[in-house]
Design a protein around this nucleic acid. Sequence first.
DNA 1: CGGAATCCTCTTCGATACTG
DNA 2: CAGTATCGAAGAGGATTCCG
Lengths: 219, 219
Amino acid sequence: MTSGRRGYQQACHVASALDLLGERWTLLIVRELLIGPRRFRDLVEALGGIGTNLLSDRLKRLAEEGLVARRKLPPPASVPVYELTEAGAALEPVLWELVRWGVKTGRDLPSDASYRPTWLVVAMRSLFRPERAEGLDLRLEFRVGEDVFHAVVEGSALVTGLGTIERPDVVVTAAPEIFRRYENGERPEVLAKTGKWKLDGSKRALMRFEKLFAVKASL
Amino acid sequence: MTSGRRGYQQACHVASALDLLGERWTLLIVRELLIGPRRFRDLVEALGGIGTNLLSDRLKRLAEEGLVARRKLPPPASVPVYELTEAGAALEPVLWELVRWGVKTGRDLPSDASYRPTWLVVAMRSLFRPERAEGLDLRLEFRVGEDVFHAVVEGSALVTGLGTIERPDVVVTAAPEIFRRYENGERPEVLAKTGKWKLDGSKRALMRFEKLFAVKASL
DNA sequence: CGGAATCCTCTTCGATACTG
DNA sequence: CAGTATCGAAGAGGATTCCG
């Protein structure tokens, strides 16, 4: 079965990478794991109904290729989880560029589609501009519908996570459909008029937020 | 049949982009067109035996979505060609990151695979570091096997093309399999020992070349 | 009960033949 | 040359079964 895999057989890194990553679901599995280790069941739910056989196949392949590791959480949890290796996590820039392309070219997210807070974390990471963050510090909390996540800018690094954060400089509160419009590139001033988008923080902090996370016009 | 398309239905730019680009061959078609307009037949050959029905389907879809335009070359040529629109060309960073990921993580290109000079152009564009090119000028010619292409660095911009160039500062001459090893991240010093890799140019120009085009260690 | 293999149906792919 | 049509093969989706 070793040679039974379809491949492009081209001496090109694009084709070679796509041989591994180009199958359906694969990059979305990477997206989920970028936020942190996940259990098999969590992945099934997050991906919205991938067949368990496919997920099993994909994880096996990614593990073979060294992008994903299967690990057992230490006791007392002792449950198996999947997590990205360094090589797997190195794919993040690929996902960033997909997001940035979508925003830049104005491709609207479907309004009838499902959404997960972790995807918003990925989106914010994609839109972050480290080259503008030189020496700036900023602590952000996002409250989208029932979901809360945060981002911390330190120097030119960005750390993100689910849940609240201590002493935020900026708190973004938005309804999910409004946050989707933010991801579609609409300016905060416009969103504010809906009454379902609110930015709390000092003027200075709010300006930094706008500067550090690009939307359409500035990509 | 309008809704007969399989999609992820997720409010996430990664998933949304992949709905369009994630099918087999699609991103490789974009890769080909990044180098310039191509005829249908050229694409079939460059892609190494894609079914003409699939190529037809993909081009149709890409045209619908505004990433590709079908155009007729002005007389006397008067032949139809496909070319990227601005939105299509905006995908280039996605391909860059795929190449950089492959190099960075040391994924070797298959040695028995086909290769095309245009892929080498894409590779060099991917490895170019504009942030290190500040104010530098450099004219490069690459001779790989029978194929010749060039790159011109001006300011922090890079322009590439097939064929020779006037007054090159650096000429890289390599056998195809050695150039593949360069793409795999091997250092020029090592490649030089094979006798099938040669760099011509002033010491200053050669240093610039190494600085402006990253290989594994410095990505 | 979570994790993964199996089975069956449907869609997509790939190769070639065919038409304007 | 530029595609369209056709058809067997491979892959995807979904439900169910097996296993620890």
